[in-house]
């Protein structure tokens, strides 16, 4: 759609829109959600590791995304893989937002949220299920996690599964480190991984 020049005479009817649009948007989201038309609800929260996108389906939390992943790109990807009925609906993410806030405040060690693992398949999903066995404040090597799986030698595949974890923080891929003691990569960035490991040890 090309941009249209707005004649000055029409400016007054365009100016008063913002308040009305906020009100209409909120009412629309509420109604759409109550009628079951929102397949993916999302909100963005602030956190010590930057802005986080939280997205949920009817089944549960389906995606946590760091700002570095590009939230717009993540939403487009959710629209393509799950459903294009994607709407900002903060209320549907209240529980997830609250638990993450408690986690960053060191008031929560385990997440008690319904999770939707549909974005991880096969071996990747198997790896994610084992990540949840690594307790708060502890770490495990990629090799140790691989040893827990049906493919004990698939160390690199464990690394890939961690790098593509659709639910970072909640499924603690940040607790997986290199066997040589190195921290290893993190999709939220090295700084975020250090911060999380330090937060859990403190």
């Amino acid at each position: 759609m090309d941009e249209h020049e707005l004649p000055a005479e029409l400016a007054p009817v365009v100016a008063a829109d913002a308040e009305a649009l906020n009100r209409l948007g909120a009412a629309f989201r509420k109604r759409a959600s109550s009628e079951g038309l929102v397949d993916v609800a999302y909100r963005v929260i602030d956190s010590p590791v930057g802005r986080l996108l939280l997205a949920a389906t009817e089944a549960g939390l389906v995606r946590v995304a760091f700002a570095s992943e590009g939230h717009d790109a993540v939403l487009e990807s959710l629209a393509a893989t799950i459903s294009p009925r994607v709407l900002a609906d903060p209320a549907r993410l209240d529980a997830a937002a609250k638990e993450l806030e408690e986690y960053f405040d060191r008031r929560r060690r385990h997440f008690d949220l319904a999770l939707d693992f549909r974005l991880a398949h096969g071996f990747r999903r198997e790896v994610l299920s084992h990540l949840q066995e690594i307790g708060y404040g502890r770490t495990a090597s990629y090799a140790a996690v691989a040893a827990l799986t049906s493919s004990p030698r698939a160390v690199r595949a464990v690394g890939t599964a961690c790098a593509r974890n659709p639910l970072p923080l909640v499924v603690p891929c940040h607790r997986v480190v290199r066997s040589d003691g190195g921290q290893g990569a993190y999709l939220g960035g090295m700084e975020a991984k250090s911060l999380l490991l330090a937060l859990e040890v403190a």
Partner: peptide, 13 residues
Amino acid sequence: AVPPFEVLVTQHG
């Protein structure tokens, strides 16, 4: 690609 519906609301609302 079909855009997220949210894009339609914010762009065309």
